[in-house]
Design a protein around this nucleic acid. Sequence first.
DNA 1: TCAGTAAATAAGAATATTACTATTTAGAAA
DNA 2: TTTCTAAATAGTAATATTCTTATTTACTGA
Lengths: 140, 140
Amino acid sequence: MKTPVLLALLKEKGYKLTAQRQAILAALRYLGERASAKEIYEELCKEKPAISLDTVYRNLRLLAEIGIVQQILLQSGTVFELTDDGHHHHHLVCVDCEKVVCIPYCPESCAYTEQARAAGFAVLGHLFEVYGRCTACQQK
Amino acid sequence: MKTPVLLALLKEKGYKLTAQRQAILAALRYLGERASAKEIYEELCKEKPAISLDTVYRNLRLLAEIGIVQQILLQSGTVFELTDDGHHHHHLVCVDCEKVVCIPYCPESCAYTEQARAAGFAVLGHLFEVYGRCTACQQK
DNA sequence: TCAGTAAATAAGAATATTACTATTTAGAAA
DNA sequence: TTTCTAAATAGTAATATTCTTATTTACTGA
């Protein structure tokens, strides 16, 4: 995610490009695919001046809203992942070891939007995660 | 949910039928379709002896695991709903007023299980919620 | 460039949720 | 019925997440 692109996405909704937002994205990139709010916070605390924990949470929520990151709900808590292509996707999550595998499948393509329209809802988004047991954990 | 049925579902996994579990279900029924852990806790605190908050959370998680209740993630927090027929379903959630509408649609019926199998995952369940704006909130 | 304004931040308080541990209890089996 | 044992509970501590408020800052337009 290049800064001009981020700026455009933010500006679209009246949000501002701040050093903290860029730092959060940089930390997420640095930490690898996925990280919890606390991990990002701790990474950024190494810098001076340190960021506020609330700012990390607030911005991860905002970045998720504009589609730059995605939230994944594990048993042990919530982690965030970059969606570099801007297109969201979903996950298979192992309930034992918490291994996460991305799947290209998205229920958007199925017919639920019909039902939403019938109920008078304007669909904005959805949450979809599949839980199961990975190959390794099935052996145990 | 009649007690014998609940007992059978619990026994199946080695869980016990406790007064607290029955009280939580009774409270949920009494409070209407949906309630938060705190609402259930406060309702049960009117009784003597009062229940522990931890017990409410722990058992709502367990009841969700065996399919008697379902968790719905709202912006303002998590609420629980009875699934009287034992078959789960999903929801349209208004992000403004938090009105919830049940929808019969379930992504289980779509092809994601194929992908899960290919990745070596044994699917246990899934989370699916649709967020949008209801008719009333679209007028605002 | 400079001033004005809405948005964002930091810091700490408040709330929500989960974990820990000693004690109690439901259900199994004698 | 009595005993035994794993599961469950209460109470409290710990952690995760969100809210509140005073202050700072990014962008806008002159």
